[in-house]
Design a protein around this nucleic acid. Structure first.
Length: 111
DNA sequence: CTTCTGACTGGGA
DNA sequence: GTCCCAGCCAGAA
């Protein structure tokens, strides 16, 4: 996950690296990209800038907040849709849209 | 360059 | 556990 393509491009690239059945956090992505979670907001913003075509190749639904909750506000990408996507991959999502990061959390290549 | 915004994060009540 | 406030970074006008 490196290059001069721009921060957004890097965010999308890293998001594609998130294995199915796992989830990551905005801060986690920022951490893997820049080395710090300060740009967590920018990460969410990058995913917010995803187009429909990109949304099909970039698993944006595998990215949630540090609290393990879905913060989505997009009409096309509602929290309900994200929860459904996660559930479709085997990720157990709470009724409130909460996910156990300790169980499904992914913050880089574990192996 | 300056200003404003955004799918965040941590600490306090 | 939930809600509110202040700080952070990157992009667009």
């Amino acid at each position: 996950v490196s290059g001069t393509e721009g921060f957004f491009q890097r965010v999308w690239a890293l998001t594609e690296r998130i294995p199915p059945g796992r989830v990551s956090t905005y801060g986690g992505v920022s951490m893997l990209l820049l080395g710090h979670a300060r740009a967590a907001r920018t990460v969410g913003w990058a995913l917010h800038g995803l187009s429909e075509a990109q949304a099909e190749v970039v698993p944006w639904w595998r990215v949630i907040n540090a609290a393990g909750r879905i913060s989505t506000s997009c009409a096309s990408h509602s929290a309900q849709l994200q929860a459904a996507r996660l559930a479709d991959e085997g990720v157990q999502v709470d009724a409130a849209g909460r996910v156990d990061l300790a169980r499904y959390g992914w913050f880089g290549d574990e192996g």
